[in-house]
Design a protein around this nucleic acid. Structure first.
Lengths: 249, 249
DNA sequence: CGAACTGTTGAATAAGGTCAAACCAGGTGG
DNA sequence: CCACCTGGTTTGACCTTATTCAACAGTTCG
């Protein structure tokens, strides 16, 4: 797993600052995380309240129904957010990547679970101090609103997928989503990393692992993708994949 | 349709103020809409920029891909928000009722359609002035963040429904949602009004109209609901319905 | 009163789920 | 170093659920 290694620079931070965040300048996500909405003194305040925490794969970061929720930015790794039914049925509502914000400052209680699926490094803010800063610096709240709006649109796009798309279209859309995210973070579009396993993909797409596997095989046989191994996929025909994802084929 | 009649008080406002909103004190949704987040001078500013607009059933209020989007609060009627695929497949991402806010101040362009499904009365704010007010009054932005967060959670709850629930559970969950909304607006829980038709319900639940119809009949035969007519349903056994909705039966 | 919808019910079909077996890669220990 | 074990993944055969297609019933409205 390529995501599992811990960056040397941040290891150093931990060793020096005893888990205290003090090296924002070295931070891998400083250009995309919420910090960018703040300047000068406010940014310093945010930095001073931040600590770094690590989570092992499978560890629960946030549990639904818990009130004193945690707030933080993902620095490294991948987190799955999901909802559960009492009989164990699970729906993944999103995967969170470095730069994404975790937790809510408005909701009284958490309403989804968040779980590390690979080793995760989190830049954590204590809720009371963060709330205070949000009141003082409206740009921060505005940034959170922007993010919530974007998340809402993605969730609704996913409702379209879950409610109306075929298995083939769902898998194609999922791959396109990963490609777009990789693009936006500046990575070459060559081989797509899948930090999640088939079961987590299935729970994201409203399918079973068998169906996900079959559809991936189909895409491979059609020469559209190249399944290097379970966690790495090469994209051979991106336009075709986009067409399939939109249900235009 | 009970929702289709226009309130006399607001008719009067239109006649007097020529579609200018001036009677907030008589407004049906003044206690639940975004206005409540503001006080004194700010609330007056919001009132002064507002105008009332009416939309007929089937009329598009907001179209996806359009940038100078409209902002407003629903005063009367029901709006469906939906996404479309190029081949016409449709997913309703939500129904909006009086008090709900329509439009986004952060997104550059609209990403869903909004359509009146019954006669709708909308309290409209001009985007530039509203944006300015939002910058001046952080409580307004905070309120929008609260609403976006709530919408996001509902969307994710619906992802669980679309991805993991059976047809029976979906229909039961849908009815429970309407009951809860009616409760919250203080209406007696007696007969639930369904302003939308079967096709719109189906597009909300990721089913076909036939399946929706069959499941409703099943609930009727089981003595759980009483289908008075296509747009009005009585709830006979609410606990049982809740159990079904949660998939615990 | 009858046309045009909208909604309901029934029978046949297909898409995806379930169950089960085979496969494969990575880690363990002889 | 290699056989073995284990978990995740793939593939196949069969089955269930919801869709599709089609006919019918009920409402609404001119």
């Amino acid at each position: 797993m390529p995501v599992s290694s811990i960056s040397p620079s941040l290891r150093q931070v931990c060793a020096l600052g005893h888990e205290r965040q003090s090296a924002c300048t070295a931070c891998a996500v400083r250009d995309i995380a919420i910090c960018t909405s703040l300047t000068g003194a406010d940014q310093a305040k945010l930095r001073d309240m931040a600590t770094i925490r690590h989570f092992a794969p499978g560890e629960i970061i946030l549990a639904a129904e818990e009130s004193p929720a945690l707030l933080g930015t993902i620095v490294k790794g991948t987190v799955k957010a999901y909802k559960l039914m009492t009989d164990g049925r699970q729906q993944v509502v999103g995967f969170l990547f470095p730069g994404d914000f975790l937790g809510s400052i408005t909701a009284a209680a958490q309403r989804s679970f968040a779980e590390a699926i690979v080793p995760v490094e989190l830049c954590v803010f204590p809720p009371p101090a963060f709330q205070r800063l949000a009141r003082e610096a409206p740009q921060l709240e505005r940034r959170l609103l922007e993010m919530a709006t974007a998340d809402l649109d993605l969730a609704q796009e996913w409702m379209l997928l879950l409610g109306r798309k075929t298995a083939q279209e769902r898998v194609a859309t999922f791959l396109m989503l990963l490609i777009d995210k990789a693009d936006r973070r500046g990575f070459a579009d060559c081989p797509i990393a899948l930090p999640m396993n088939r079961s987590e993909i299935a729970d994201y797409l409203g399918l079973t692992i068998e169906t996900v596997s079959r559809q991936l095989s189909k895409l491979k046989n059609a020469g559209i993708v190249d399944i290097r191994n379970a966690h790495e996929i090469g994209i051979l025909d991106r336009p075709r994949l986009a067409t399939l994802a939109a249900g235009e084929a």
